[in-house]
């Protein structure tokens, strides 16, 4: 049986019709825990190698690669490929647009959690 694409396993959740405060501010791209985790880790580091991100997030190569590609395509991450010795190393770094998106998403999450507590 063919494996479903990684995103089909955990799709981004669409907002409900009557969105509570904060929900419309959520970035659909960051409503996936691996993508959110990668962005949070990258937000305080200059750059992180793919293998290190994989270990920190405890994801499979295939799933993490697919999620990071989406962030790269959205212009949130910059990717550099280099050789260390004879081994290829792919490094990821967050760019200003990604930092802004992450900040907005975290603010919206905070508003949503506050509204749920009231």
């Amino acid at each position: 049986m063919p494996k479903p694409p990684p995103d089909a396993l955990s799709p981004a959740r669409p907002p409900p019709a009557e969105a509570p405060p904060g929900l419309d501010g959520l970035d659909p791209l960051l409503q996936h825990r691996s993508r959110l985790g990668a962005m949070v880790l990258l937000s305080t580091a200059d750059s992180i190698a793919f293998s290190h991100l994989r270990d920190l997030l405890q994801e499979t190569d295939g799933n993490l690669g697919a999620q990071l590609r989406k962030l790269e395509e959205a212009g949130y991450l910059a990717v550099t490929k280099q050789f260390v010795g004879r081994k290829p190393v792919t490094r990821y770094a967050i760019v200003p647009a990604g930092q802004a998106a992450l900040r907005g998403h975290l603010r919206a999450m905070e508003a949503l959690i506050k509204s749920a507590k009231v």
């Binding site: 305080t44 580091a45 200059d46 992180i48 190698a49 293998s51 290190h52 991100l53 270990d55 920190l56």
Partner: peptide
């Protein structure tokens, strides 16, 4: 601390 390289953070 886990990967194959040191990780430098803001801290």
């Amino acid at each position: 601390t886990g990967g194959d390289e040191p990780l430098y953070t803001a801290d």
